[in-house]
Design a protein around this nucleic acid. Structure first.
Lengths: 113, 113
DNA sequence: TTAACGGTTGAACAAATGCTCAATCGTTCC
DNA sequence: GGAACGATTGAGCATTTGTTCAACCGTTAA
């Protein structure tokens, strides 16, 4: 039978365990990262960082079909990362989560400096 | 044929386009997010934020098979997010990218405050 | 009223993903 | 040398994922 004590890292293990104790937090965290892990969604979020945009414009900007954008927006909406506002036949979207915006900002800064 | 000019958001589109102009950066960015988007990998990264750990310990801490951990470590290694150090039959891993560490830190802070 | 358009939706499909399982490698210890 | 163990690897598999396509809804403009 395998034994962790075979190599003396008991205290290390405990520290690591403690660090990831809040499984719930880590779960939600990885979910957030997962959302931004898709290029289309990340582009949507980045685009909306600047301003309010409708589905049609988003599709044009990202060079993706309106359907594809709509599908992704639905995901972003279900996680309350984005909110919509209807105006005639247009539907405008804006970011609804300043955390996401900060995350992206930090990430971009790291990659561009 | 569809026309963006149908609704007056030309300048908005241009701004959005400019914002996501560096497709390469966004691509790498979403790749990074994608890596952290998997719970197992995120846990590995978080665990390694604290200290050097070997595969066996990681497997114990995360309650995942050594094989699964090894597979994920291979991915993290291929993206140079992690580096290894052999010591006898043990292989110790440490983080190799301070950007990742910062990203996770920022994300955790947002979710816990 | 009807046609056009922006947007949404669901089915279908291909691609990617993450795990298990079994085989294998290298090192240590008897 | 041989057994035990930590670690890696590849095949196989089930699941998830993101897109396309076609149908449809609501609003606008003719």
């Amino acid at each position: 039978m395998k034994e962790s004590l075979a190599h003396n890292h008991r205290t290390s293990i405990q520290a690591a365990l403690k660090a990831i104790a809040d499984v719930d937090t880590l779960g939600r965290l990885s979910e957030t990262f997962k959302i931004l892990g898709d290029p289309t969604r990340l582009k949507i979020v980045v685009a909306l960082t600047n301003e309010e945009l409708c589905v049609f414009d988003l599709a044009q900007v990202l060079s993706v079909s309106e359907s594809a954008v709509s599908h992704q927006l639905r995901i972003l909406r279900s996680l309350r990362l984005v909110k919509q506002r209807k105006e005639g036949k247009l539907v405008f979207y804006t970011l609804n989560d300043e955390h996401i915006e900060d995350l992206v900002r930090v990430a971009i800064r790291h990659y561009t400096e």
